Computed example of a mutant assay.
Amino acid sequence: MYKQFCLLVLILFIVLPVRSFGQQVALKTNLLFWGTTSPNAGLEIGLGQKFTVDIWGAYNAWKFPNNMRLNFYLAQPEIRYWFCRKFEGHFIGVHGHYAHFNIGQIPFIPNLEKHELRGELYGGGITYGYHWAIGRRWGLEAMLGGGFAYMKYTKYKCEECAEAVGAYTRNYFGPTRIGISVIYFLR
């Protein structure tokens, strides 16, 4: 599913006319992910007057006290339709996501206090958001998305972190994207 989404993004780049209508490229970072100590960055490229492609990702490799892990890398490409003009006001989008994760020994999450999960996540969904312009080069964006995720992972007992308890798959429907992003426009 992730490969088909990437192919769709590539086809849209080739097929949709790319004309110059104001801002075409923006750099961004999601402040909510920084709150989880996860560095992240995105690039949004304008396609025509009302479409953009947002390519965003995050990475967390930090080691926390008490062997707590929240290690992952995540990619969430998205095609957006803007109701007014690109980078102005309301938008809706279709996003995909892929993540590789190694999380565990998190004391405030049940079932992860003494276990570790290692695996991958695939899926997609729909996003709604709003963009506020702050001057000529800066913007602020809020978004919320929901959809589907398929997870395939192995659960480990973490006293030694080498004893596999079992292999699992899960299907998830619910929130799949959230963000408050600071945006800088390139010229």
Rank of each mutant, 00 (worst) to 15 (best):
L186M: 11
L70W: 13
I109Y: 14
I183W: 02
I55G: 08
Y156H: 04
I126S: 01
L32I: 14
V53Q: 05
N111G: 04
G22K: 09
W82D: 01
W82C: 00
N67F: 15
I92R: 02
V9Y: 08
Y184N: 01
G57D: 12
Y73R: 04
Y153K: 03
Y81K: 00
F5M: 05
G46L: 09
L27T: 05
C161Q: 09
I183T: 02
P65G: 05
P77V: 14
Y2D: 07
G139T: 02
I126P: 00
M151W: 03
W34D: 04
F64E: 07
I180C: 08
Y153N: 02
Y81S: 02
S38T: 09
P110C: 07
Q4D: 10
Q4P: 01
K28W: 12
A142S: 10
T154I: 10
L16F: 15
F51M: 01
F173I: 11
W34M: 05
G46S: 11
N30F: 11
A99C: 07
A41H: 11
T37N: 12
S38W: 13
E78H: 09
A26K: 06
G179E: 07
L27Y: 10
Y59I: 13
S181G: 06
E163V: 15
E113N: 10
Y59P: 00
A167S: 10
T154G: 03
L10Q: 04
N40E: 08
Y128T: 00
I14Y: 12
Q105F: 13
G145A: 08
C84A: 15
K50M: 11
Y184A: 04
E160G: 05
T154P: 00
M1D: 11
R19Y: 14
W138S: 01
R80I: 03
K157F: 15
Y156G: 02
W56E: 11
Y172H: 07
E160T: 15
I11H: 04
G129Y: 02
G166V: 14
P175T: 14
G22T: 12
T52I: 06
N102L: 13
G124C: 05
Y150D: 08
F21M: 04
L112I: 09
V15F: 14
G89D: 01
W62T: 03
G48Q: 03
I55W: 13
Y130G: 00
L47M: 14
Q4C: 09
L27R: 03
I45H: 07
I14A: 10
R69E: 15
R69M: 15
I109E: 07
I103K: 03
I14R: 01
H90S: 06
W132N: 01
M68G: 06
V9W: 09
C161A: 12
A142H: 04
F185T: 03
K3Q: 14
L16S: 10
Y122Q: 02
I11V: 15
G129A: 08
I178T: 09
G135N: 04
L70Y: 15
G93A: 08
L186H: 08
R170G: 05
S20D: 09
V9G: 07
Y2P: 00
I134L: 14
G104Y: 09
Q24W: 06
Y59Q: 05
